[in-house]
């Protein structure tokens, strides 16, 4: 099993912290994992993205050129990464903020109203968790339960209320998928 994942959105949508959670959960599930942030010259309001690899074999490079899965949180990210997705790959789209649809027909597209769901349960900032919950439900890379258990470890400063909200967001993402 090898999954190369790119998560991308606006700065502030939690794509980097979401990627770290995914890598951590993969580690807890006994996988080989790497997390690699885009550390280039990014601009305010531009896209933030990170690459995560979850694999049963050792990971050669943490750089994901052709991802197996894309978690797309905003409109510019779709334009930027759509063509890089592997043929037959999985695209999870935050339809609250992405109005266009991919032109490609050789990929699997899952539409999740991530930001809307997060807002409904209490905080739009949990949209990243909704996306990850959907991802965990759809693939074998990481277990949904492990994702939830990892929240407290990865976000050590989060209070109980925030932890519960994020767990709920992961569950909601799983249900929506």
């Amino acid at each position: 099993m090898y999954q190369g994942i790119i998560m991308s959105g606006f700065g502030g949508q939690g794509v980097v912290s979401g990627g770290i959670l995914l890598a951590y959960a993969g580690m807890m599930d006994g996988r080989n994992v790497t997390f690699f942030p885009a550390y280039g010259a990014e601009m305010r309001g531009g896209t933030a993205n990170c690459s995560v690899v979850v694999s049963t074999d050792p990971v050669a490079s943490p750089v994901v050129g052709s991802p197996d899965t894309l978690l797309i949180m905003n409109e510019p990210s779709l334009a930027r990464f759509e063509n890089s997705l592997k043929s037959g790959g999985l695209l999870i789209l935050n339809t609250t903020l992405v109005s266009s649809r991919p032109a490609r027909k050789d990929i699997k597209v899952i539409e999740i109203a991530g930001s809307e769901i997060a807002e409904r349960i209490g905080n739009v900032k949990a949209a990243n968790m909704v996306m990850l919950g959907a991802y965990a439900k759809l693939t074998e890379a990481v277990r949904l339960g492990t994702l939830k258990e990892s929240i407290k470890k990865v976000y050590a400063r989060a209070n109980d209320k925030m932890v519960e909200l994020n767990k709920k967001a992961i569950d909601e993402g799983g249900l929506a998928a």
Binding site: A23, F36, P37, V59, P62
Partner: peptide, 10 residues
């Protein structure tokens, strides 16, 4: 290199 500096791993 920058990869080893920037990446996260167990």
């Amino acid at each position: 290199d920058g990869i080893l500096g920037q990446m996260m791993e167990p």
